[in-house]
Amino acid sequence: MNWLRATLEAIADDASVEFAVSALHTGSGTTFEVRADTVWVAASTYKLVLAAVWIEAIARQEVNPLRRIVVHGPQMAPGPTGFSLFEDPVEVSYRDLVRSMLTVSDNAAAQFIWRDLGEDLVGETIARWGLRATRIAEPQELVTDGWPGRDHDIWAEQRPDMSAGEFDVKLFSLATAADLRGILQRIWTDEIANPTWCNWLRVTLGQQLFRHRLASGFAYDGVEVAGKTGTWGPYRHEAGVVTHPGESPVVISVLTRSARAAQEQPLAHAAVGRIAAEVVQALRQSPATLNP
C-alpha cells in the first residue's frame, strides 16, 4: 500500500464509507486503482453506459438522435427529477431525452432509452467493448447470479428488498470502477461512435446539475468537471472527468458504500470529492510517485 492509498483509506474511514477508485491521466497514461475490479451496484451510473451505447447506435445508424418522442414520465418510471416529475405528456427530441437522463439523472428518460435500445443491443455493445463486469439487466436473473459482495471484500449484508415498488433497472445493474473509467476513457478519446457524438456526450456530461460529489473536490475556478452520479441506498458513486486548463483530462470513477442507511449523507458525498481530489492531484503532479 503506497502513501496515496493510505490517504484515501483514511478519508474513507473518517466518512464511514468503503470505496473503489479507478483513474487514468490521459496525457501520461498513468493509472491509479484501488479495488477497481470489485463489482458494485451501479445505481444511476448505468445511465452513463446507456448514453455511450446510444451514441454508438447513432454512429451505426440504428438510432435517430432527432426523432421526436412523446414522454409521459409517470407512466415510464418514477423518480425525483426530470420527466419523471412531469404530470402531462411532452414532446422532446431523442437527444434531449438523453440529455435529461444525464444532466438530472432522469429515470423516466432512462427507462425509455433502455427499452428503446433493447437489452440485446446494450449487452452486445458492452461485451464488444470488453466491459466484462458491467451488466445492465432486469432483476430476475441477478437474484441468483453475481450479486455484489460475493467473492469480494465488500459484503452484501443487506440485500435490497426486491419488492415490486423497487423494480428499476438502476437497482440491479452492476459496474466496476475500472469499467466505468473505461467507458469515459473511450468517450474522451473518440474511441467509440464518432468524434462528433463523443464531443456531444462530453459536453452533455459537463452539464450535469449535481456538483456536490466529484466536483466538490475541485471547487475552484478554471477546472472543468464532467460526470455522472449514482445514488441508491448506501451507494454514492460518481464517474467523471476532471480537466485543468492546458492539461490532459484525468478520467476517474469513485464508488462508495456507506455503513449507514441514511438518505442524507453529506460526508459520503464529500468523501467522493476528497478521494478524487487526492488522486487527480497526484496524477497531475508526479505520476512516478504513485508506483514506487
Binding site: 474513507a12 474511514d13 464511514s16 468503503e18 459484503w155 449484508e157 455503513a259 449507514r260 442507511a261
Partner: peptide
C-alpha cells in the same frame, strides 16, 4: 456497535 463499516468481515 453498528452502523459500522465492515469491509472484509462477515456479519
Amino acid at each position: 456497535v453498528s452502523p459500522v463499516l465492515m469491509p472484509g468481515v462477515k456479519p
